[in-house]
């Protein structure tokens, strides 16, 4: 082990939704300054992996260490970009309000955001070219603009590790270019980025490392070594029939003691 702890270390992580296992025994070690893409078919558990790392979805086994720490204390060092569809865009908040939310962990309980927080939020908006929209209600933005707001919020968190859930989903080409440029800039500043990605055609160009995921870790490593026909086939092709059957059986027979997540 290095003297400085890894940004992300996962050991034997297992997660299930409504009794149905979605991730099995995932082991991962991500080094500082890497730009990593997570790819895999629908339902492979890509978003679940991210959400479990962030403590949004509870795990059923294994552990996650962020910069050598477990649990909530480590979250301040992580910036998170959730999927765009995960929130209600009619909510009465402005673009700046949303970006300021990225500062909340730094501000602390009961306190108000300071002028410094506001100027940081404005800078982050500037970086994603959205400062002109600061006062606009978030529902009155295009999909690409909404994604940039989420990105600005993550930037405002001033973290060392970033987890992004499909930041390229449903955005225009200009936004896509802007996002990838931003990711590279962050990487060059020594930040670690883990990005869930759905488009195989450009995954090879966008990332340095890939995580191939399909309910379990298929492979993790440099793009040249992981973006291979064999491994991709293993990830996407050949439905893991026996595997899913067993998963279904488990879902049907297992009793209580499951931890589910609700949004009520």
């Amino acid at each position: 082990m290095n003297s400085s702890p890894l940004p992300l270390e996962i050991h034997d992580l297992t997660v299930s939704y409504h009794r149905r296992p979605v991730l099995y025994g995932v082991d991962l070690e991500i080094e500082e300054g890497s730009l990593v893409g997570i790819i895999g078919p629908n339902g492979a558990g890509k978003s679940t992996l991210i959400k479990t790392i962030m403590g949004i979805v509870p795990s059923r086994g294994g552990w996650v260490k962020i910069f050598g720490q477990k649990g909530k204390k480590s979250y301040t060092r992580v910036g998170y970009v959730p999927q765009r569809e995960s929130v209600d865009w009619d909510f009465p908040v402005s673009v700046l309000d949303v970006v300021l939310m990225g500062r909340f962990a730094h501000v602390g309980w009961f306190k108000r955001v300071s002028k410094k927080d506001r100027s940081i939020a404005s800078e982050c908006l500037e970086k994603v070219n959205m400062l002109a929209f600061a006062d606009r209600q978030i529902g009155k933005l295009s999909g690409g603009q909404q994604q940039r707001v989420f990105l600005a919020r993550a930037l405002a968190q001033e973290s060392d590790l970033y987890l992004m859930d499909e930041p390229f989903a449903g955005v225009d080409a200009v936004t896509e270019d802007a996002i990838i440029e931003l990711l590279r800039e962050l990487k060059n500043r020594g930040k670690t980025l883990i990005v869930v990605h759905h488009d195989l055609s450009n995954a090879k160009d966008y990332f340095d490392q890939l995580i191939l995921l399909n309910m379990r870790l298929i492979a993790h490593g440099e793009v040249e070594k992981t973006f291979t026909k064999d491994l991709l086939q293993k990830t996407y092709g050949g439905r893991l029939t026996v595997f899913t059957e067993i998963a279904d059986q488990v879902a049907n027979t297992q009793t209580s003691d499951q931890v589910t997540h609700n949004h009520l």
Binding site: M54, G55, K72, Y75, T76, V78, P82, V87, F91, V93
Partner: peptide, 15 residues
């Protein structure tokens, strides 16, 4: 405000 708008993100910052 944060828990109302984006409970997932709120959890991710430890609220």
């Amino acid at each position: 405000l944060l828990t109302g708008f984006d409970p997932g993100f709120a959890r991710s910052v430890g609220l």
